[in-house]
Design a binder for these strands. Sequence first.
DNA 1: TTAACGTTTGTCCAAACGGTCAAAATTTGC
DNA 2: GCAAATTTTGACCGTTTGGACAAACGTTAA
Lengths: 204, 204
Amino acid sequence: MDKPAPAKRTRIQREKRELIREAALEVFSQHGFRGSTIDQIAEAAGMSKPNLLYYFKNKEEIFATLIRRLLETWLAPLKEMDEAGDPRTEIRSYIRRKIEMARDYPRESRLFANEILQGAPRILPMLEGELKALVDEKATVIAHWMHAGKLKKADPYHFIFAIWATTQHYADFDVQVRAVLGPVRGGEGRFEDAARFLEGLFLE
Amino acid sequence: MDKPAPAKRTRIQREKRELIREAALEVFSQHGFRGSTIDQIAEAAGMSKPNLLYYFKNKEEIFATLIRRLLETWLAPLKEMDEAGDPRTEIRSYIRRKIEMARDYPRESRLFANEILQGAPRILPMLEGELKALVDEKATVIAHWMHAGKLKKADPYHFIFAIWATTQHYADFDVQVRAVLGPVRGGEGRFEDAARFLEGLFLE
DNA sequence: TTAACGTTTGTCCAAACGGTCAAAATTTGC
DNA sequence: GCAAATTTTGACCGTTTGGACAAACGTTAA
């Protein structure tokens, strides 16, 4: 009789919850939190609203689990940046991974952008905690690389911001990018073009 | 007895409409279109909902006038880029202007970002028309500068995208930037730091 | 077979929302 | 000073929305 509150989930619960998350990602990333309705998500997941609410307590909770998972995905590429590796190779790989994410997971990128735009009401603590700590660490690494003459000297924090901004731009502002590039240059190749351009920009 | 449909507006109408636009910018830029209510805007403007609706037919129309004005502001800095000027000076000025806009008009930037994120439902034609035309023109100018050896060679379209992305990042992702930089480096000086970094990035 | 448990649905509700309207209050032009 | 025009307000309406609930349906394992 209990709602699925504890972690002991049945097979159906695991499947349906995943189905709902997928549908919610689709809807939330297109319309934002307040712009999305439970009905829309339920329909996208192929079930009725009360049925959906059997699996998630409320709209907020669906969004919360989505954001929680998103942050993992989001921090992963930066975490992989290895102090022991070759600086230029590491930066190049990081840019590549970020551009691939913009291409393959644009919905996640937009969801994240949406949340930050609204002032990050639900993830501010994580930005000030986990994210800041990670960036502090990697900024130090980058600073060392620059000091050793392996990279052009610059502010490592703004260097990271610039990589974030430029790569995510191709997911978040995709409509604008395609509108400006037109049907020819705005085709599938645009991500490869972008990657090449960004490598040149950030690595001389 | 007529609603303010024609252009002949009274003093009060001009003042109140401006007041509403200001309030609407505040609210829309924080919550997006669907996340904002007429009541919120009315309260921010210090008037009742029916009173607000005396000046604007509906929510959509408030948003429309805001977006229309926004696009002017938005294209202005790029328009000012002068083929006859010194390339490096022109680019530097453009970056400066964009960073100043991120600092002084973050609400406009967020409103714009919000609209694009949702797929630009209301301004797609303008992106494909006016904006594309302007970028095409300026990309040609930049390409000439690069060809003449005045700037490092790169794809001029992605060059422009990168300037947009990095500068607007400081308005749209301000919360994140401040969270990561912390209270010390995240103070007022962050825009100046950003400007210096970006000049270095884009001009060698 | 059947009892217990898990899942799904139809119905319903209260609050929030966009927007209308007529009447009251105020301002303006003569 | 007054009539006409403009501005403001309170009350109201239909719709959408998030969410509750009990009843019905399905599954599983003793």
